[in-house]
């Protein structure tokens, strides 16, 4: 910002002295960020996979799930946080409900796309080999749907890490609290550190998901 001639101090993009004395603050924020993200992804998967399997079986449920979560996905996170505060108050629950909902929106669609793409011949072959419905689902259909589910998980992971920064506005920690600190104190370092760590975290998490996919689905290489 404009400074008078007697205060001609130029704020560097990274003030290493500040960083070295505030390293525990930064690492704490990173840890909170990872925790918020992990809960949102884990719960999102736990809901989306059974929901996707059920919606694959029932046309009515498919329409309802895609419609509801499609609309949910459209609503901005800050608006959902704000609407939930009176009911779930400031804190983790208020942050997680929208984050989990967004992840379910992405993942349920990809579960459906993956299950839809299982070839009819494969299902006939599995039936002919004597698979009952549940083993056929677990050992034939879901494994073949995994590449699509992993593709959704990658999008969900990177999106969640970005959106978690907004939870700082409802008083949660995470890297967003450093961005907020940079904004409120008009000080570049926490902002720049948070941006770098957030992008690095997103890239690392994406790489981890890709590696998990290589282990789980060795026959289909991720793009």
């Amino acid at each position: 910002m404009e400074q008078g001639p007697f205060l001609a101090y130029v704020d560097p993009w990274i003030n290493w002295d500040w960083l070295s004395t505030h390293i525990s603050l930064v690492l704490g924020a990173l840890g909170e960020h990872i925790e918020l993200t992990a809960i949102a992804l884990g719960a999102g998967l736990l809901i989306a996979v059974p929901l996707g399997v059920a919606a694959h079986r029932s046309a009515g449920l498919r329409l309802a799930a895609l419609g509801f979560f499609g609309a949910f996905y459209t609503i901005p996170s800050l608006a959902l946080f704000a609407l939930l505060i009176p009911f779930t108050h400031l804190g983790g629950t208020t942050a997680e409900i929208p984050l989990i909902g967004y992840n379910v929106s992405i993942l349920v669609r990809n579960v459906l796309v993956g299950l839809d793409a299982v070839p009819r011949d494969v299902l006939d072959a599995a039936d002919g080999m004597g698979y009952r419905p549940l083993p056929r689902l677990l050992r034939v259909e879901l494994p073949l749907a995994l590449p699509s589910i992993f593709a959704g998980l990658r999008v969900a992971t990177v999106s969640t890490i970005g959106i978690v920064t907004i939870t700082a506005l409802i008083g949660l920690g995470g890297l967003g609290s450093l961005i907020d600190k940079g904004l409120v104190e008009n000080f570049h370092t926490p902002l720049v550190v948070a941006m770098i760590l957030s992008v690095a975290l997103a890239l690392t998490a994406d790489l981890l998901v890709v590696m998990a996919q290589r282990v789980a689905v060795p026959w289909a290489r991720p793009v």
């Binding site: 990177v158 920064t165 890297l175 967003g176 961005i179 940079g182 570049h188 957030s198 992008v199």
Partner: peptide, 24 residues
């Protein structure tokens, strides 16, 4: 394709704050 992946990874909140600190 990857420009969308990159776009998702960069926090929108941070982009706004950086733009504010640079342009006022």
């Amino acid at each position: 394709i990857n420009i969308s992946n990159a776009g998702r990874a960069i926090p929108s909140f941070g982009i706004l704050v950086i733009a504010f600190q640079v342009f006022g």
